[in-house]
């Protein structure tokens, strides 16, 4: 069925969903007039992608920020009789991960979308060494859970370590816009802000020459979703009998995954580009709850084909 692989319907659909998700996550366009952030009830809901909740246009919460905040305030809340462990956020992320694994990174994350757009700038291509892709798990454990929980002040409050020291999305979406909106904040700028600007600048340059460097190296949210790639309801499948090891899937993959080595690799974001565009031999397909959808599609296509 070459027509199934040749068309770009799913790629165009993904682009539109990325645009829609970015717009919906940042739909508070009154901010230039209010000079503040959105404070409505929608902020109680975490968005599935990385989107800073202090972005003036943000309509939802960042799941990573919310999770760190639960860890940072766990002790004083517990002391006050509130058993808040962050189960609301962990449950939401686990539910999404169990259903589709790392798919939100490809389809719904505004920061992932930005990286794909910036990588369109013509430049030499630099591959990211595999050991660097494990850093995100260290950041997840240390900066999202351990440090906010253990490094506390005299009242028992920790800080949101990843937001404060690393997150380039926060600098881009909240730091810079709010500095422009609120001139009084500029007086508070110190070495921390400059170090975060430097991190953002480094990632922006890296995005030009490498594919999704932040997702692959430093995103703790992607690290959480990636834990579910092998066990999610939606899974990619590889047919070694049809695969010629041509490497087309690897060359086209926005995450630099060698699909033929591991169909549900921790860095696969299920963008389906390899399935839709790269593989000309039908070696790549996907399944939902163990039911291969590609075969179902093929059957439908054969059934729908005109009789000769």
């Amino acid at each position: 069925m070459p027509q199934l692989h040749g068309n770009r319907v799913m790629l165009i659909l993904r682009r539109w969903i990325q645009i829609l998700a970015t717009v919906l996550s940042n739909a508070y366009w009154k901010f230039p007039f209010t000079k503040g952030i959105y404070q409505g009830n929608l902020k109680a809901v975490c968005v599935p992608g990385l989107n800073c909740y202090s972005c003036p246009a943000a309509t939802g919460s960042c799941p990573l920020g919310a999770l760190q905040n639960f860890m940072a305030t766990l002790r004083p809340r517990f002391g006050a009789g509130h058993t808040h462990f962050g189960l609301y956020v962990i449950g939401m992320l686990g539910l999404i991960g169990s259903l589709v694994g790392r798919m939100p990174c490809a389809w719904l994350c505004p920061f992932g979308f930005l990286q794909e757009l910036i990588h369109k700038i013509p430049s030499p291509e630099f591959e990211i060494p595999k050991p660097l892709t494990y850093i995100k798990y260290i950041l997840l454990g240390l900066f999202i859970f351990i440090l906010p929980l253990l490094v506390v002040d005299e009242f028992g409050y920790g800080i949101t370590w990843f937001c404060k020291h690393i997150c380039p999305a926060g600098t881009l979406e909240a730091g810079i816009p709010l500095m422009l909106l609120k001139p009084e904040l500029r007086e508070l700028i110190g070495i921390l802000f400059h170090s975060k600007l430097l991190i953002l600048a480094l990632f922006l340059v890296w995005m030009v020459v490498s594919r999704r460097p932040f997702c692959r190296v430093a995103c703790p949210l992607g690290a959480i979703y990636s834990l579910f790639n092998k066990v999610s309801v939606f899974r990619m499948t590889h047919d070694p009998d049809k695969c010629t090891l041509c490497g087309a899937c690897y060359r086209d993959c926005p995450m630099g995954v060698k699909f033929y080595e591991n169909a549900n690799h921790y860095d696969c974001i299920r963008c389906l580009k390899c399935y839709q565009e790269s593989c000309r031999f039908g070696a790549i397909s996907y399944e939902v709850a163990g039911i291969p959808l590609l075969k179902a599609l093929k059957r439908t296509a054969e059934t729908d084909a005109p009789m000769e």
């Binding site: 503040g36 952030i37 959105y38 404070q39 009830n41 902020k43 109680a44 809901v45 975490c46 800073c52 909740y53 202090s54 939802g60 919460s61 960042c62 920020g65 919310a66 905040n69 639960f70 305030t73 809340r77 509130h82 058993t83 808040h84 462990f85 962050g86 189960l87 609301y88 956020v89 962990i90 449950g91 939401m92 686990g94 539910l95 800080i159 949101t160 937001c163 404060k164 997150c167 926060g170 600098t171 909240a174 730091g175 709010l178 500095m179 904040l185 508070l188 700028i189 110190g190 921390l192 802000f193 170090s195 975060k196 600007l197």
Partner: peptide, 28 residues
């Protein structure tokens, strides 16, 4: 987990944090 979190009132905790400008997120 999600249901327990909602039942424990964690939704309002998320809202409480998210409606304030997070100076940490900005790096200041």
């Amino acid at each position: 987990f999600l249901a327990i979190g909602i039942n424990l009132g964690e939704v309002s905790s998320v809202l409480e944090k998210a409606i304030r400008v997070c100076l940490s997120c900005m790096g200041i």
